Computed example of a mutant assay.
Amino acid sequence: MANRLLRRIAEEVLGGEKARLVWSRIDIIGDIAVIKRPFTGGVDLEDLKRVAAELVRRLPYIKSVWLAYSPVEGPYKTREFIHLAGEPRSETVYVEHGCRFRVDIRRVFITPRLNYEHIRIARLVEPGEVVVNMFAGAGLFSIIAACKSRPRTVYSIDVNPDAYRFMVENVRLNRVEDVVVPILGDAARVVEERLVRVADRVLMPLPELALEYLPYAVKALRGRGTVHVYLHVHYPRGTDPLKTSERLVGEALKALGVRYKVVGSRRVRPVGPRTLQTVVDVVVESVKEEALG
């Protein structure tokens, strides 16, 4: 229903051809609409301002509209935004799977397009598990898992001070202080100093660093355990992005002397022309001692 309404508004403002480049790239986060810059040309800033003004006028639950101008970049996972219409406010409360999250779209990474992935991971977590989330952001994976499953502990790490601040607030907001442990710091260092051989499951939802930090995910496992590795994969025509993802993760684990089994992989979302975010779910069955350093 929401998608049909966004499409209709974009078509009425821009016409069919331009609207096609815009409407599917609108995300609603709390009472803020975010328009991600179209992959291809043909739509300029004035076009987007006209769409944004109409969204605020016709949809009472949208109070502010922003253009996500740059890709997500850097260790803090932030991007550049331009205010388009409505209140010049970037902080909001976003609700997903019955959990509430206070966020600032300019300071922390958040996308409702990970909605299914958040609940998929939560449903995989088994009672009593210890989970390490190496790139937790404002805490969505961690808190939804704590609310929907019964993990013993979720260590929730992020290097971005703003993300950590919101994560601490969101842990209190959802009353999971006895389960989720927010930690500010670089995940590699945190694992080395505090979390070697503690986890049954490790989450790596930062594609840019996943393969580089995979040795630390393995170190965090207390023995046999599961690692969820998120990647960005460019796939030329005729290639399979899931096979490519499984191969990349397999090569990295073999180089560490890890015996493993891929138990699943899936397309998460498009992130660029012929580029996908994927996830590979791997069970680590055994690790050579030297891999633990």
Rank of each mutant, 00 (worst) to 15 (best):
V283E: 14
L184T: 06
A52N: 13
A68P: 14
G257K: 02
V287R: 05
P236T: 05
A122G: 04
G139H: 10
N3Q: 12
L195T: 12
A2N: 12
R107Q: 14
G238T: 09
L55Q: 03
F135M: 13
D44V: 07
I9H: 00
E129C: 05
R274E: 10
D44F: 01
E17C: 11
V191I: 13
R89E: 01
A122F: 02
T153I: 02
A291L: 13
S70L: 09
V51E: 05
E192V: 12
L45H: 04
G250T: 09
L195W: 09
R165P: 03
V202W: 02
T92E: 02
N174F: 03
M167I: 10
A33L: 03
I183N: 02
L253G: 08
Y230E: 12
V227H: 01
T78K: 08
E117M: 06
V262A: 10
A187T: 10
I105Q: 05
S64M: 14
P273M: 09
A145F: 10
V176N: 01
K219D: 01
V108D: 00
E169H: 04
D158L: 11
G15Y: 04
Y260P: 11
V22P: 04
V198G: 00
L209W: 15
S24Y: 02
L124C: 15
R4F: 14
P151S: 06
V202T: 03
L195K: 09
F81K: 02
G98M: 01
V159L: 12
V190C: 15
V287P: 04
R189P: 09
R152D: 02
R113Q: 06
L84E: 05
N115T: 03
R113N: 05
A33M: 02
P205G: 10
N160S: 08
L67Q: 03
E246Q: 14
R267P: 06
R106H: 14
P38H: 00
I82Y: 05
V202Q: 01
I9K: 00
R222P: 09
G15C: 07
P75C: 07
R8Q: 15
S245P: 08
G238K: 12
A136S: 14
R247T: 15
L14A: 03
P273Q: 09
K18S: 10
T111A: 10
A217K: 11
S90C: 13
L59V: 09
I82P: 00
G16K: 11
N133M: 10
